Amino acid sequence: MLELTKKYSIKKIADLKDFITVTYVLIDNIYKEITPTHIKKRRNINESILSDSQIITLSIVGELLTIDSEKAWLGFCKKNLKDLFPRFSHRTRFNRTRRALHSVIDAIRKELTSMLGFRDKSFRIVDSIPIPVCKFGRARFHKSFKVDSAYGYCASKKETYYGFKLHAITTIEGFITNFILTPVSICPRNYNQKREFN
């Protein structure tokens, strides 16, 4: 794992706890700069078990470690990171706060991308994956996503599904620089028909 020092030189971080600490410091500094006051000083924020920066750090580190199971990752953190996080909020509270901070997390990702210099590189990889919202047989009864989602075909899985597509732009190194969720009907070759990446 890598650490950005003040002189922008790079050194290895061998320990997960050190990596989480460095990531937290970076994220907390960005959070303080970019987060609107109405989010930073919202009601009951002082009674929170975990700060916004801690929740964002745990979310981003879990993604960087490519851990698919959120339950398993939070369970691991509660068991092994007690010295960094003496008190841990319940998983549902953690998830509610994380979802509410979606726009802040997105802005922090963009700042980290810019800070690490990935935004200046000329080449990007664009790919998309299907995001089914329910089993195919239940699609005609589904009411939540009738407006934005549609039926689509996933060639790699050889199946028709009902839901969305996640389109991501990454650097050659695999760092995600941007992403967008669209209806199934949007083709990767026609992004500007619907909306453009920033």
Rank of each mutant, 00 (worst) to 15 (best):
43 R>V: 14
118 F>E: 02
98 R>I: 01
170 T>Q: 00
154 C>T: 01
173 E>L: 09
164 F>N: 03
63 E>P: 10
156 S>K: 05
78 K>H: 06
156 S>G: 03
198 N>R: 10
3 E>W: 02
112 L>H: 05
56 I>R: 02
180 I>T: 01
113 T>I: 09
141 F>A: 14
105 I>F: 03
77 C>T: 11
188 P>H: 10
4 L>P: 07
109 R>H: 15
94 F>S: 01
146 K>M: 12
157 K>F: 06
25 V>K: 11
116 L>P: 09
98 R>T: 02
192 N>L: 05
164 F>V: 02
124 R>W: 12
150 A>K: 11
152 G>C: 03
146 K>H: 10
26 L>K: 12
19 F>R: 08
163 G>F: 03
50 L>T: 04
107 A>C: 14
149 S>V: 08
37 T>R: 11
43 R>E: 14
38 H>T: 06
57 T>R: 03
185 S>L: 09
61 V>E: 05
50 L>A: 06
42 R>S: 10
134 C>A: 04
77 C>R: 00
16 L>H: 03
31 Y>P: 03
152 G>T: 05
24 Y>W: 07
89 S>A: 09
70 E>W: 13
161 Y>G: 01
28 D>Y: 04
116 L>K: 09
7 K>G: 09
50 L>P: 06
25 V>H: 12
194 K>I: 11
149 S>T: 11
21 T>N: 07
27 I>P: 00
147 V>T: 12
132 P>V: 04
14 A>E: 15
66 T>V: 14
147 V>G: 10
104 V>F: 03
16 L>R: 02
65 L>H: 10
91 R>S: 04
192 N>I: 04
142 H>L: 07
78 K>N: 06
148 D>Y: 14
3 E>M: 07
70 E>D: 13
83 D>L: 07
25 V>Y: 08
130 P>K: 06
157 K>M: 09
